[in-house]
Design a protein around this nucleic acid. Sequence first.
DNA 1: TTGACATAGTGTAGAAACCACACTAAGTTA
DNA 2: TAACTTAGTGTGGTTTCTACACTATGTCAA
Lengths: 220, 220
Amino acid sequence: MPIPKATAVLATNVVVFTIRDERLVALLVRRPRDPYAGLWSLPGGLVGDEEGLEDCAVRTLRDQTGVQGLYLEQLYTFGSPDRDPRTRVVTVAHFALLPPARLKGELADECNTRRWAPVDALPALAFDHDRIVAMAHQRLAAKLEYSTIGFQLMGERFTLSELQQVHEIILGETLDKRNFRKRVRSLHCIEETGDWYRAGNHRPARLYRLKQPGAVEFIK
Amino acid sequence: MPIPKATAVLATNVVVFTIRDERLVALLVRRPRDPYAGLWSLPGGLVGDEEGLEDCAVRTLRDQTGVQGLYLEQLYTFGSPDRDPRTRVVTVAHFALLPPARLKGELADECNTRRWAPVDALPALAFDHDRIVAMAHQRLAAKLEYSTIGFQLMGERFTLSELQQVHEIILGETLDKRNFRKRVRSLHCIEETGDWYRAGNHRPARLYRLKQPGAVEFIK
DNA sequence: TTGACATAGTGTAGAAACCACACTAAGTTA
DNA sequence: TAACTTAGTGTGGTTTCTACACTATGTCAA
C-alpha cells in the first residue's frame, strides 16, 4: 500500500472557446519556462493560498490573456502522477466561452505568445492539454443538446443565423434552418430587441437578446 | 493580486450509492479525528505521492469500508479555501454504485463507524460532504435519463422489475411498467439468461444479464 | 385440487416531438 | 429596375412518448 503524502502542486487550466473564421478555436499561450518551454499550452497556473479553484481559473486567465467576464465552468480534474515531468501537479480544468463578437482589438491579435488554434487542428501541446481540449469540446457539444449553454457564445444582441452557425460549427454538422428556429423559439429564453442587423446586400436580420443573460438551463 | 503558493493538501472522497429498504442510501464513515471528530463523513483520504486520483478513491474506499470492484467516476472537485478549518484541503469527489444484491454480510452491517444513510435524510456531515452527496445524487439521476448507468446498480443477473424499482427510487417518481420495459428493450444491451427468479407466491420473473457488464453508454 | 394471492408480462391508440423539405421577403448594389 | 444575397416562414410524414388494464403463471393454504 502506498504511503499517502499530504500535498500536491495544484493548478487550474482553462479552455477558452470561441468561433473564428467559422471554426471552433481554443486560446493557447506559449510556455515561457520548462517543462515544455516554447510549446503551446492552455492558460492556467498555480492555485493561491486563499483562492477558490474557479477564482484561480479566472485570475490566471485574466493575467495571462486579458480575457475576463466569461461563462466558465469546471470540467474535470487531471491528476495522473506523471502528467508533469518535474513533480506531481494536479490541474482542475475548466472551460469558458467567449462570444466571437468580443474578438476585437487585442484579443483578436495573435502573437508569438498567444494564439487561437482550431480544436480539430491543434499544434503540439504541453502536458496532457490536448486531452483537456478534447474533453472540453466533447462536453460543450453534449451540453448544446440538453442545455441553453450555446447562448453564452452570443454577444448581447445576436441574430438567429449567427446562433445557428455557432451550433453547426461546434457540432460539426449542418442544421435545418426552420427546425432550428422552431426549437430555439420553444425555449422562450430570448426576445426581439426590435432592432435589425444590416450587413451586405440582403435583407436585414432581427436582433435578439437573452432574457436572462447569465442563465444556463437544462432543457427537455 | 494574491500570491500563489505551490501546494495544497489533496484528497479524494467517494459517494457510494446503493438501494436499501427501498431508499437510495450513501455509505458514511465516522470521523475518528478532528476536525469534526465523531461526525459522519464520506469515505476518502489523502492522495498518495505516485497515486492517480481515481486510484486513491478506490484505495481509500477499500481500506475504510472493504468495498471494491464498483463502477466509479469522477464527480467534481471541491476546493473552497475554508472548507476545512485546519488548512487548505482540496478534494476530488467521486461517486460509485454498489448493486444492492452485494449488500450482504459485512457490507450490510452498520456499526458505530460505518452506516448507510438515506440521501434524503442525511445526518449532519463533516466539511461540505452534504453538498457532495447532493451533487452526486443529481448527477446520477440525470445520467439515468441519457445513459445506461442504471445497469451498474444491478447484480450479475436481475429482473426488469428490480431494474425499474431502482430507477424509480433514484428519480423519486413511479414509472409506467410497459413503457419502461419498452425503453429498456430498445437499448439492446441486456439479454435473457434463460433462468427465472422465484420469490414468494407468484409468477417467477425472467432473469437478464448485461451483454457488456462494464459498459456505460450514452443513449438517444 | 382448487381457489386466493401476488407479481410478471404484454399492446394499442392518441399526442407530441422530430425531421425533411422549398419558396417568398426584403434589403443592397450595380 | 433587375440581380443578388441572406432572412424568414409551414406542412406532412415518421417516430417517439405517454397513458392506460388485463391476462399469465407461479406459490400457498384451505
